[in-house]
Simulated assay, not measured.
Amino acid sequence: MSRNDDRFPDQVRGSAPVLPNGTAVTGTAESRAALGEPVELVLLDVGGPVYDDCWYREALLRATCELVAENGGMLLEAEFQRVYDARRQSQEGSLRTAMAEHFLRDGDRERLSDRAESYWFYPPSALHPDVLPALRQLSERYSIAVVANQRALVVDALRRDGVAPFIDHWAISELVGAAKPDPEIFWHALNRAGVLPRNAVHVGNRLDSDVRGAQRLGMRTIWVVRGEAPPDPTPEQLGEPDIAVFSLADVPAAVERLQRAR
């Protein structure tokens, strides 16, 4: 298999491997304890790492504007963006909840969620160009599981766009009945694959649901800093995952790095 390890020079910050962007292999005590363990399974988020999150943003914006109008008001996109970016920056809690709290009446959260989901879809153009090459490379060495807070119909988009053939196991929140960071959805994928958390790496673009959720089970984590990741990640945020990358193209080498690091 072709390797990209030349992008990960053997720099050291203390005893932690460091990526070219200056991000060290960090993580929690549990995930650091797994460093050097063989990786058997890569768990992959969908919104952000695979598909451009702008399509979810557009669905949420449309639904929020409509409900504000139905309540007799008007929402400017700049106001929506301010709240959207603030919640992304904090990496704490649901974007839908933030919009409902700031712009809607009490009890409108579920209406917002249902309406946003009815508008939420991924056209073929939403697929990031680095996805299929990265999955092709990963699939040569590891099993791959999708672990995503999505409706079941996302599987149709993944099949349409050539992603599904690389996926060995599925954990879609609507089908599992649990959403990240609930441990149940991670365990669903791990149990299907027959893999222990110390032999798995989770790849996602949110700290609250992806990185922290996976770390609680003792998995190593790779944070893909795009989509619903913070507009301006802080050094502290960059230090939460074991590795932070800015492209899925860097994930195969990052996984390899994690299993070689001590």
Rank of each mutant, 00 (worst) to 15 (best):
L35D: 08
G194I: 00
E70Y: 09
R216E: 07
L153V: 12
I167W: 07
P252S: 11
G27K: 07
W120K: 11
V155P: 00
Y119R: 15
E70D: 15
A16E: 12
R7A: 13
L238Q: 13
L76S: 08
A16S: 15
E184Q: 02
R216V: 01
N71P: 07
V147M: 03
R226E: 14
V46G: 00
Q91K: 10
P181R: 01
D130A: 06
L112M: 04
V203P: 06
A171R: 01
A253N: 10
D161V: 06
A171P: 05
A63P: 09
G177I: 02
L19S: 15
F246L: 11
K180T: 06
V146G: 06
G162Q: 04
A148C: 10
P38F: 00
W120R: 13
P129C: 05
A152H: 08
P9C: 04
Q237N: 15
S2Y: 03
F80R: 03
Q81P: 00
T23N: 15
P123C: 08
L43M: 09
V251T: 10
L61V: 09
S118W: 13
V163S: 14
G48K: 03
R260F: 07
A214I: 01
M219S: 02
S118V: 14
Q89L: 13
D106C: 08
A200N: 05
R82Q: 12
N199I: 00
A145I: 01
A86E: 14
R226A: 13
N199M: 01
S139M: 03
E140K: 08
L95F: 09
R111W: 02
R3D: 11
A69H: 12
V224L: 14
P129W: 00
A59Y: 07
R111Q: 15
E40T: 03
N205H: 14
E117G: 15
D5H: 12
S31T: 08
W187D: 00
E66M: 14
A59K: 03
L61I: 04
A16I: 01
S125D: 12
E140R: 12
R96G: 13
E77C: 05
L35R: 07
D106K: 12
V251W: 04
P241I: 03
V211W: 08
R57G: 15
L196Q: 09
A86Y: 02
Q259P: 03
S94R: 01
R109I: 14
